[in-house]
């Protein structure tokens, strides 16, 4: 579990201010730009449903396992009850959990897709996220389709489910091994932020790994690293561009280009 990086939505009804350069962008323009700042190319965070409608052909998405929820297996008691927190997050986001999975068409390519939503408990992976990702991979195997995951998780493994969450890392990674044995394609897209237990499991195991510009990606959170080493972190540390330079990802693709790039990649398999 990683420290949350607060993303304040600075909005006044008419539009939003860019978190990076401070430019004010009108709502309509922002929608047209797919929530990318026209001045500095900052990519605002997107919800899972927004991402699906951005990539899949209208009306082709069929959701799976939409009624799966967590039932607080440890009876976890922090300052607030985990079970209350889940209900609160469900109300806030309109989602049942931090991942949406299903099938659909990207152009003319049928695919299985799993998208985590960083707004729901920081996109952290507990039993439900682990199970839905695993089932998505199994569905890909059963139907012999490519698997596409889009990760946005500042939370990593969800601490409120203790060891059950940690073991979802092993579970999702072993089903990717199965996918490989079946010689099926797995493309992993990393968005801001992809950290901790999600980064250290399925999200890092794609045949092809694509990141959005400037996305924060890594194992340990920047604050934990700073506290450990007692010095400032280099400029751009753990950003997509930093990972690209060090050979950790295949490419960085802007949101507006993503569908075209994916489609052309899928053409080759």
């Amino acid at each position: 579990m990683i420290w949350p990086r607060k993303q304040v939505e600075r909005t006044n009804g008419l539009g939003m201010r860019c978190n990076d350069c401070g430019e004010f962008i009108l709502g309509k323009k922002l929608e047209k730009m797919l929530k990318v700042c026209p001045k500095c190319n900052y990519h605002f965070r997107l919800g899972a449903r927004e991402r699906i409608s951005l990539l899949l052909k209208d009306g082709t998405f069929e959701e799976c396992d939409s009624q799966m929820t967590s039932h607080d297996p440890l009876n976890f008691q922090g300052l607030e009850l985990y079970r209350d927190k889940i209900v609160e997050e469900q109300k806030k986001t309109g989602l049942t959990e931090a991942v949406i999975t299903g099938e659909g068409y990207l152009d003319n390519h049928p695919i299985v897709i799993a998208v985590t939503d960083s707004r729901f408990m920081m996109g952290s992976m507990g039993s439900v996220v682990g199970e839905k990702i695993t089932r998505a991979a199994e569905r890909a195997i059963e139907k012999r389709l490519p698997l596409l995951t889009i990760s946005g998780s500042g939370g990593g493994a969800r601490m409120q489910e203790g060891m059950l969450s940690l073991m979802q890392m092993a579970k999702t990674s072993s089903v990717i091994a199965k996918l490989n044995k079946e010689k099926l394609l797995f493309i992993s897209i990393l968005t801001d932020p992809t950290m901790g237990g999600v980064a250290a499991s399925f999200a890092s195991l794609g045949d092809i790994i694509i990141a959005e510009p400037r996305a924060l990606i890594g194992f340990a959170g920047p604050r934990v690293i700073k506290e450990t080493i007692h010095r400032e972190l280099p400029q751009g540390f753990q950003r997509a561009e930093f990972l690209f330079k060090r050979g950790l990802i295949d490419m960085i693709v802007s949101r507006g280009e993503l569908k075209k790039v994916l489609s052309e990649l899928l053409d080759k398999f």
């Binding site: 890392m169 092993a170 990674s173 072993s174 990717i176 091994a177 490989n180 980064a199 250290a200 499991s201 399925f202 999200a203 890092s204 195991l205 990606i217 890594g218 194992f219 340990a220 959170g221 934990v224 690293i225 450990t228 080493i229 972190l233 280099p234 540390f237 753990q238 930093f242 060090r246 950790l248």
Partner: peptide
């Protein structure tokens, strides 16, 4: 949790071992 560890792909190294 350190700079070198992240530069050399701590997340990938762990993920690969799990798989």
């Amino acid at each position: 949790p350190g700079i070198g560890a992240e530069e050399r792909g701590q997340a990938e190294a762990i993920a690969r071992n799990l798989m």
